[in-house]
Amino acid sequence: MTATGIGSMPGGDVLASEDDNAREYAEAVRVVLGELPDFAHLPELPGRGAGASMTGRALALVTELGVDLQPAGWRLTGSGSGIDHRRARSLLGRDLDVFEEHAQGLAGPVKVQVCGPWTLAATVEKPRGDKVLADHGARRELAEALALGVADHVADMRRRVPGATEIVVQVDEPALPAVLAAQVPTASGFGKHRAIHPPEASGALETVLSAVTGAGATPVVHCCAGEVPVDLIRGAGARGVAVDLAALRASAYDGVAAALEAGERVLLGVVPTLDPATSLTDKAVADKALRFLDMLGLEPVPGLVLTPGCGLAGASPAWARRALELVASASKHLR
């Protein structure tokens, strides 16, 4: 039983210099490694701009498709990649260099995060506009290109952090429930994209999760929505799920319990992502997790991992550090 972060951290500014952003990223790495030595994660600083966003980080791994940044957001191109795509790749490479430098001697699991195929399809546009989600062939190609990129990313992390006992890949799918429920707006904003049926949704997820497994890493799917389709996620090959306890609805409880009983990881978000109005103690955080387990009829199990509810990009630096400290200390209470 341990603790980790979801991914994003405060810091960075799209208008700041490259050196200033580099210093902020190095500080985020030091905070993560200092507070979460038993289960570190590669931090993300989306405040630095589109290339550092969840979408931009995932597209930085995609080399099989041309991508560029337009005023409306990221878009596939019919030709090669634009300068913003190349910048996103360069930024990720520099971040990995910083993490590698500070993670020397690290022993234990290490987690990286990547935007999943359905959230990517719901945010990236086709060359002529509208979301990739609207085109069956385009969304299949994007999932396949992402799978190749993620496999290479795992190999790169294993080379950079040779002491890591396990590479965990957290596939972020905040838009998955909306994709399944036909709640993703069209480009005009006046309509919704058609619902993606569960078999196809599972198939695209399986493409990416199988690539993670094939590369020797452990795939976990993160969804901070209320209606988390845990059974679909596990059926697609995930070895764990990451959820926000404050948002999670009772309909997903059985799926979470089944994952824990099967010995899979459940990353349970138990600490607010924004600075709370009142102070929290590690014992209160541990009690919150225990009450949830009691509701499921379970005892604390090794697969339980405490986390903040979601990413910490909107938090103050002081709260981000405190949030990681709280989940780490609370996990020790549960042991």
Rank of each mutant, 00 (worst) to 15 (best):
Q183G: 12
A22H: 13
L133S: 01
N21S: 11
A252I: 05
P174T: 15
A134W: 04
G203T: 11
R86W: 15
G34M: 11
V179D: 02
A164E: 06
V305R: 00
L293H: 05
V31A: 14
G297K: 07
V161W: 05
V184G: 01
E27Y: 07
R89K: 11
G51T: 03
S210T: 07
A328K: 09
A328M: 09
A52F: 08
A122F: 10
A289D: 02
D275S: 13
D135P: 01
D254V: 15
Y25F: 08
T281K: 11
R87K: 12
P43C: 11
A52G: 05
A22Q: 14
R194V: 08
Y25K: 02
R57K: 13
G189S: 05
V161T: 04
P177V: 02
G149M: 05
A16R: 10
R75H: 08
M295G: 05
A258M: 09
L205F: 10
G66R: 01
E173M: 03
A181V: 05
L146S: 00
D130L: 12
V243A: 08
H102T: 03
H85C: 04
H41L: 15
G129R: 06
A145V: 08
A318F: 07
P177I: 06
G237I: 11
S279L: 14
Q170P: 00
L180K: 01
A217I: 04
D254F: 14
L290P: 00
G235K: 03
M157E: 07
R94P: 00
G309Y: 10
G263H: 05
L15S: 15
E206D: 15
A187W: 13
L232P: 03
V124R: 01
P272R: 12
A195W: 10
L334T: 01
S316Y: 14
S316G: 03
T119M: 09
D287W: 13
R194I: 13
V184H: 01
Q104S: 10
A315M: 10
G7S: 13
D244A: 04
I233M: 06
L267A: 06
A330L: 02
A259V: 13
V230W: 09
G105H: 09
E27Q: 03
L312A: 04
L205T: 00
V285Q: 12
A147S: 06
G108W: 15
L142N: 00
R239H: 13
A242Q: 05
I6R: 01
V62H: 06
R30H: 07
L176G: 00
A72I: 07
A259M: 08
L91E: 11
